[in-house]
Amino acid sequence: MRGWFLAVALWCYGCDHGLDAGPPGQSGIAGRLVFKGEWPPEAEEVAVAVYENTPLQVADLYELSGWDTGVGIGVPFHDYFVPIEGDGTYRWVMVAWRPMGSFWDFRSLLGCYHAPGDTLPTPVTVLQGQVAGGVDIEVDFGVLRGEEVPGYDLCVGALPGELVGEAGGG
């Protein structure tokens, strides 16, 4: 009888468990968000969103390649990770926010990734099974009060007018 139990226990332990926990070297984009200025009290969520191409029209905003919404509200910085399926080059890595009582709108631009010295958003290349790290973005909440924020104009300038109307406004 004990043999039976042992056999069943071994079978249960050793068998296929369906969905796996994912390979350790998963593809994705990682970096640090650094927040400046006072967080808006109505902030409900902040997210990093990754697009393969810079959106040119509203419909393109749907074509998210991945996002991370696990940003703690009120924190000075957050180390994010956006899992990405497959390798490729991603040209628009941006930070958006959602005020309380509102829905997600990825025109609510807070900032985007651009390497020092670049005058346009910097593309990020992801290789299969690897994480593209160091994709850091600085977010200054002054943009919500219409303040001049270095680098923000660079992000806004990459977008067509249709997608700029509510940028920063949530």
Partner: peptide, 13 residues
């Protein structure tokens, strides 16, 4: 779920 690595947890929000 929060993400594929933490499928039994919800997003912070």
């Amino acid at each position: 779920w929060k993400n594929r690595q933490h499928p039994l947890q919800v997003p912070a929000g």
